[in-house]
């Protein structure tokens, strides 16, 4: 039951629309030219690798076209979950990320609170400037510094010997039981100052009247720190906590890779190093891709959980 009016207006509309699109494109041609190369870039360098996940389900052989690859289903995932070494790297990843959560997340908050209590501006700024410095230094350099500090005749051993805590040097880098702590310590050393900036920014946005009112009420410094500053930065703390939890399995691999040696390998290898050593080094591409997919899926799930948690938490806080 179409009227003729509708029939004739349809192509007209379409013509109009097509004309609009072409006129928009010609009007915005400079904008298109400015972003098109980079749209192609992002598709090639960020989205094409996602397509590469199909490798995990194939007996992937490099050089063969996609259509000739042999599909094997979940074979490599089964192999991955039957590999004892994979559980070892999973344990190491989680251990180091939880230690990172316990220290790498909390200590910058403590530093920000303490810095905020320093009234001498020059001293405060100097400490801040010094503490940000390691953030800009590469992990290679930091690993070199750590190796030097912790060597048999290094500074740490000299101090411990001088204090009489030990009577012969400890080979820190050669002892597996120290590795997780060395990585965590190096990470805290490198990032504590830098990670405290965001909390300092949050502290500086707290309404100063709150402190004045508390002073009038006779509150001491410690009371103010616990009851004004800390609650004041709580929203920021929660956001950072959620982001940290979302990234628990993405702890990176540079520091572990640079600080490890054959003696501590069983405590040093994380998922990414498993992928690097077996997947690329051993040319077991499908297995490595499966491990990488596992990591991505876990991190998306963690991000989702943390996000739901933060939404609920934020609602509670808002109410």
């Amino acid at each position: 039951m179409k009227s003729t009016g509708v029939d004739t207006s349809m192509p007209m509309n379409r013509n109009l629309k097509r004309k609009n699109i072409w006129s928009t494109i010609s009007q915005q041609k400079y904008l298109i030219m400015m972003c098109l190369p980079f749209v192609i870039w992002v598709i090639v360098f960020a989205y094409v690798p996602l397509w590469g996940w199909t490798m995990a389900f194939q007996d992937y052989r490099p050089g063969l076209p996609f259509s000739q690859q042999e599909w094997v289903g979940f074979k490599y995932f089964i192999e991955l979950f039957q590999d004892n070494y994979f559980y070892l790297v999973l344990r190491n990843t989680l251990a180091m990320s939880l230690l990172g959560l316990a220290f790498g997340f909390t200590l910058p908050i403590v530093l920000a609170l303490l810095l905020n209590e320093i009234k001498n501006d020059l001293f405060k700024r100097t400490v801040q400037t010094v503490s940000y410095l390691p953030h800009f230094v590469s992990w290679v350099v930091v690993a070199s510094l750590v190796t030097e500090m912790l060597s048999g005749s290094g500074t740490v051993n000299n101090i411990l010997l001088a204090l009489g805590i030990i009577d012969k040097p400890i080979q820190f880098m050669a002892q597996p039981q120290y590795f997780w702590w060395i990585v965590t310590g190096a990470d805290v050393w490198k990032e504590i100052g830098w990670n405290s900036i965001i909390f300092l920014a949050a502290i500086s946005s707290i309404n100063p009247e709150l402190y004045e009112a508390a002073t009038v009420d006779g509150a001491g410094r410690f009371t103010k720190m616990l009851h004004i500053t800390l609650p004041g930065i709580m929203p920021t703390v929660m956001v950072i906590l959620v982001m940290t939890i979302g990234n628990l399995v993405n702890i990176g691999f540079e520091k572990q890779m640079l600080l490890r040696n054959p003696l501590v390998k069983e405590y040093a290898d994380v998922i990414d190093l498993y992928i690097l050593d077996f997947g690329i080094g051993g040319a077991r591409y499908a297995l490595g891709t499966a491990a990488g997919m596992f990591k991505s899926v876990v991190s998306v799930i963690l991000l989702f959980i943390a996000n739901t948690f933060s939404k609920r938490f934020a609602d509670i806080r808002v109410v």
Partner: peptide
């Protein structure tokens, strides 16, 4: 704001902050 593909282009870039293909697919690329 008036760019016709603004949402598409910006979405394309934002997503890359959360997912990546990983080491081996990038190596193959």
């Amino acid at each position: 704001q008036d760019f016709f593909a603004r949402r598409f282009v910006s979405g394309l870039f934002v997503v890359t902050m959360y997912i990546s293909g990983g080491m081996i697919p990038s190596y193959m690329l």
